[in-house]
């Protein structure tokens, strides 16, 4: 069960760090402004290096046949990320995009009366204060 969950989440987690540095579009200005302190690939590598030993400790296998320790760089080398999947998910075609958006829109619509009530209450308080002044 734990292995299945790891298999499901590993690659999507590597995608969380964003596109590889060679195609990243914002980095230069963000680096000059010090908004971005480390590149996407650097952070991704830190994550891989931190997580691989944890998986091994748990007796789990990372779902990447190309994963291997690189004695020269002292980092774990990992396989190719499916950037097409990442692009598809960002474009709204991931497994749950529609569900997530539908849930948020429903929550927002269902909460409309709360926002209206809060605004009406604020108006009423304002009118009372004006009348008292």
């Amino acid at each position: 069960m734990a292995q299945d969950a790891l298999n499901r989440w590993w690659w999507p987690c590597l995608m969380m760090f964003g596109p590889p540095d060679n195609i990243s579009q914002h980095s230069d200005q963000s680096t000059a402004w010090k908004i971005k302190r480390f590149s996407n690939d650097d952070l991704r590598q830190k994550f891989v290096d931190a997580t691989v030993p944890q998986a091994h400790y748990l007796g789990l296998t990372l779902p990447d046949a190309d994963l291997k320790w690189n004695e020269n760089t002292k980092h774990w080398d990992y396989g190719t990320i499916d950037w097409n999947e990442f692009k598809q998910v960002l474009a709204g075609n991931g497994p749950c995009n529609r569900d997530r958006m539908a849930a948020r829109r429903k929550a927002h619509d269902d909460g409309a009366w709360v926002r209206e009530a809060a605004a009406a209450y604020a108006e009423k308080q304002k009118a009372r204060r004006a009348a008292a002044a």
Partner: peptide, 19 residues
């Protein structure tokens, strides 16, 4: 993008906390 993936089992909760 990560939140567009499903959590079909309780173990996925552990995977989210870890990974």
């Amino acid at each position: 993008s990560i939140f567009n993936y499903p959590t079909p089992t309780w173990t996925d909760i552990g995977a989210i906390g870890w990974l």
